[in-house]
Nucleic acid binder design. Sequence first.
DNA 1: CACTAGATGTAC
DNA 2: TACATCTAGTGT
Length: 204
Amino acid sequence: MKLNRSFYGENAVDLSKQLLGKYLVHIVRNEELIGRIAEVEAYMGYGDKAAHSYKGKRTARTEVMYGEEGHAYVYFIYGMYYCLNVVAAEKEVAQAVLIRAVEPVKGVEYMANYRYGKAIEELKKSQIKNLTNGPGKLCRAFNITKECNGEDLTGDRLFICENQKQEEPFEIVKTKRIGIDYAEEARDFPWRFYIKDNPYVSII
DNA sequence: CACTAGATGTAC
DNA sequence: TACATCTAGTGT
């Protein structure tokens, strides 16, 4: 069942926890790529020094976050990677949730190709483990690029689902966010969440 | 396994 | 100039 607009309306911290265990789906060339969301980080906008929209910073890049909730914010980083975020909260409240890791569920053979240019059978064990356990890695595996920026997550190309049947319950681990040493006091805010013991979490 | 240097383009 | 990252290299 695809998640509807109202699911995305809450603040980024609350939404990020709700996103754990949900299924990220990207349709590329008529094939379904599916991953179970295992790790997320909340970026709370105005008061969050780690957020691109800190103090209401509004540029071409951050504009999507000021728009309607439930769209994709995809940005380019370190010269070669993309990161996927889910825009949270109502219009003009520029919060987002970074998807940091997913567990491959369907289309692994395509993920192997997008990520390593190889068939799944050719991958080493370590490469399979590293398919989608990081924000840049999962974007490459899912073929998520700047083309996806602004994409409506209630649409038919890039969206998020939940299972019809009851999921196994899981424990949520709460820690500091990764890679934001510049963010002064915000560095230590416990806004990274992941599924306990999930093997695809980026860093324990 | 741990650690680190370097890749690489864009935002500002 | 810095960056919400990753890989390949070296050394345990």
